[in-house]
């Protein structure tokens, strides 16, 4: 019996060795769930591209993509726990200070809009736009019922995001002028774009903030009203800069990238890479 265990032991210890001697290179990418679809799709295509064009050998480049949010992305690349951090917002001043020694470099690959979204039932009932002040009051808890803004008589389910999320920073910056604003009116806190989308779709009276690419039939984007002007988030308004809540989608490295990481970033900025950005529902940067 001991012999069986011993063999198992040796096997587990030895099996990684042959491969690690000739270790396949890998790129670790962590961060924003908004940027994640771009990274994942690009990773898939780049891996194939690498294999066919460049190496034609057992060297298979592996690109690991993980979620966590913009804050986690920035933190992990600054601390060397990942090669690239994905962020859907700017690096905050406090982060710049904290990670001074890491010399963070930002590589922007696309542009995205943050939409103020509501449950489709509320949208169908007539709410198509809100003013910045109204949104602010909803998140402050001053406006509690959809009827106060011309909607059905239903309590508003105010959905917020985890504080470090890029989408929240950008949204709050526009609504409150402060990326880390406090929102006493919040009923629920979600994490990734997926989770928020789910929650708003499941509810029939929710309001939230979501990357424009995640808008669908159940989760509708509303326009921002400013006196008589209503700006809805569409590819045109985003591209032209009319829609006010936009942000850069970036890949962040600690210092200048080189080797595989550099090649991957160049791929993202190339026409093929930009096509991936567009396919994921965002606006290409170039």
């Amino acid at each position: 019996m001991f012999r069986v265990l011993l063999i198992l032991w040796v096997a587990i210890g030895v099996i990684p060795f042959p491969a690690s001697a000739d270790h396949s290179p890998k790129i670790q990418i962590v961060g924003s769930t908004t940027v994640l679809p771009i990274a994942s799709r690009a990773a898939e295509r780049f891996e194939k591209f690498e294999k066919i064009e460049k190496f034609k050998s057992s060297h298979r480049l592996r690109i690991l993509v993980n979620a966590g949010g913009s804050g986690v992305g920035i933190h992990s690349v600054a601390r060397g726990r990942s090669d690239i951090g994905m962020a859907s917002r700017e690096i905050s001043p406090s982060e710049r200070k904290r990670f001074e020694g890491s010399h963070l470099k930002v590589h922007t690959v696309g542009v995205d809009a943050v939409a103020c979204v509501i449950s489709s039932e509320v949208y169908d009932a007539g709410i198509r736009d809100l003013t910045r002040q109204e949104i602010r009051d909803i998140y402050l808890g001053k406006i509690r019922n959809w009827s106060e803004v011309g909607g059905p008589d239903r309590k508003i389910v105010v959905v917020d995001k985890e504080r470090h999320r890029g989408t929240r920073h950008v949204f709050m910056n526009f609504i409150f002028g402060n990326p880390t604003a406090k929102t006493p009116g919040t009923i629920l806190v979600t994490g990734s774009n997926n989770e928020e989308q789910t929650k708003i779709a499941q509810s029939d009276s929710a309001i939230g903030m979501l990357s424009y690419a995640w808008v669908n039939d159940e989760v509708r984007a509303i326009g921002i009203r400013d006196k008589k002007n209503i700006v809805k988030p569409t590819r045109e308004t985003i591209r032209k800069g009319d829609y006010p809540i936009v942000r850069n989608l970036s890949f962040i490295t600690a210092g200048e990238p080189n080797g595989e990481v550099k090649a991957f970033l160049e791929y993202l900025k190339s026409p093929e890479g930009q096509q991936v950005v567009e396919e994921s529902g965002y606006i290409p940067f170039t």
Partner: peptide, 26 residues
Amino acid sequence: SGIRLPESFSDPVPTLQTHMLVLTQE
């Protein structure tokens, strides 16, 4: 995503549990 089978001692792995966790949020 990104890893199939670990190829060295420093590779992470995908697992059923964390896979479920991510999917549950959708």
